[in-house]
Design a protein around this nucleic acid. Sequence first.
DNA 1: TATTGACATGAAAACGTTTTTATAATAAAA
DNA 2: TTTTATTATAAAAACGTTTTCATGTCAATA
Lengths: 349, 349
Amino acid sequence: MKQGNITIHNVAKIAGVSISTVSRVVNDLDRVAPDTRNRVEKAIRKLGFRPNSRAQALSRKRTDTIGMIVPDFFGQYFAMLMEGAHEEAQTKGVHIMVLKAKTPDEKLDAINRLCTEGRADGVILMLSELYPHVLEVAGEIAAPLVVLDKDIRGYRYDNILVDNQLAAYEAAKHFLEVHDVDGLFFVGGSESNVDSIARARGVFEAIETLKPKAEGRQFFGQGYSYEEGYRIAQAEVLDRIQTGRKYGVIAANDDVACGVMDALLDHNIDVPAQAGVIGFDDSYIASHRRLKVTTMRVPTKEIGKVAVRMILDRLSGKVSEPVKILLKAQLIVRQSCGCGRTNQTRKEA
Amino acid sequence: MKQGNITIHNVAKIAGVSISTVSRVVNDLDRVAPDTRNRVEKAIRKLGFRPNSRAQALSRKRTDTIGMIVPDFFGQYFAMLMEGAHEEAQTKGVHIMVLKAKTPDEKLDAINRLCTEGRADGVILMLSELYPHVLEVAGEIAAPLVVLDKDIRGYRYDNILVDNQLAAYEAAKHFLEVHDVDGLFFVGGSESNVDSIARARGVFEAIETLKPKAEGRQFFGQGYSYEEGYRIAQAEVLDRIQTGRKYGVIAANDDVACGVMDALLDHNIDVPAQAGVIGFDDSYIASHRRLKVTTMRVPTKEIGKVAVRMILDRLSGKVSEPVKILLKAQLIVRQSCGCGRTNQTRKEA
DNA sequence: TATTGACATGAAAACGTTTTTATAATAAAA
DNA sequence: TTTTATTATAAAAACGTTTTCATGTCAATA
């Protein structure tokens, strides 16, 4: 710990120039005589000068920081999002400040700390539910805002989301076409959640267009956990599985999928022979359980990258109208759907 | 998007006072006449004034932000650390800025961006390996630094770590005393990693003191992944398992543990009857696989909290000498060690 | 009644940059 | 040679706070 207070003034003094000249060479915007530039650069190296970002922020009226508001830090989804955002941020020379906010009030407070108080130049808002109040107040803010995950039709913000209905359709199609199942269950999520609804809709759409006589059911719950998957499977799907028929369950995410699988296995349903399972997200557990779970991979890292790019574009005035980006999910075929059963010897089979 | 540039000057004008008076009421440090205070507060509410954090940062010479440097964003460990740090930060009114840095050079750069350029008041450095160069250069910095995970004996920084040797000892003791195993294998990590070494040592220490005639072996690898666990188990431990004898494997973390389990199961070793497994970290997968894995839970959230508290204490001058905090891990008994086999019906058994 | 001290507030400096404006010095044009 | 551009640099203002210092008011003391 030593005191490190080397300012632009010190550099100016050593180099025998004014501070404006120093500023010019560090930001190289105006032309500086080669000789002078040399002297200044030498002084900078000698002193180890690094411009104070606080002063820069005040003067430039920006922080080169992008805020990110998330409900928590768990799961593969968050991790990948961070990876993507940081990667893009690094190449663009900006920083990321993450705030945790679960309730609408917390989100609003976070937005204010970041934008109104000037800690960030823009914010990436991860929205698990649609909070009109939050979105309206956020409109008062003079900084770009991009909303992830949640479709915010009607509000004029940038919006990045995955085509959930299509994704679920693909999953259902896989069950229907390659495994020729007789029934399809959508399990998990919540009935107030736009994503869950879209995914469920995708399942029914597939049934209607591909095999109308197949059974189709949806069982929403309290959210996206392993425990909910286990509970719902036990309470709702177990009794609906008839011997001699094949089923597919499409879970709201991989956690739910695992819960479902374990519940069925615990009650002697043969997974995946009699009932296959497909999850969502391609999270870590999906590929690190004994029976590898087939899943719809959401391009999460890409979302993170695109989000910071959008903020930056908007800051530089490149874009004016709100943009809505729809990303496609990808089916990752593993074992839990019934494919690839020869990958490993499994005692369950 | 509207322009929100309400400054202290606007407030002062509306309230009919000077900016110093406004500053005094928002920070309530000096005494202000009740009547004046009222007028100012009314003006603040009316305009929705929030002090500009950039200007505050410059003037106060601090940002009320704590930097955190991590190798990546994956896993339960990182998530819990963030939870803890953010929780503590929120109650103390500071923010957290996370930078990703894998290589030593990146770490150094991150430290400079945060401290030298004044983006943060202190930094929490997650160190997976001991980089003397990083630690030495970091010493030039005039800001508090706390190092996590890695024992930095010799360097004068704050240091928070878990007692790895003791933790491994506890795990080994469990195998030896309650399952009466004949052999103990430590699997995973790397032989250059202080943590791995400490953990392996704990295993041998337990053997020596509790059951000297038990077999003890250590198999280091390339790190902490599921894949490494699978590979090592297949290559090294499989052949060493003799029928009629009982074994315990202590994995470098839960990922490795899962890999080991799956490898053994795939080769028809009965887990946990013939070979039990104990992991480290209590990460998500540990409790969300079919066979729940017994693990040593590291108090990660606590580490996050303590780390920001230490930074803050040091900033306020409460502490002067470097502090080293050793935290204890806790054995979470589940199924993979051989306990609690009745929790769920399992077909593997 | 003049003097002191406490108190409330205003004025101004400081924080370390960027950016605008001004001013030399030099080169080109008349 | 004088005038006009052009160029390189310096000086000063601005960013929005905090904080120090100065000032004025009023009540208490001498």
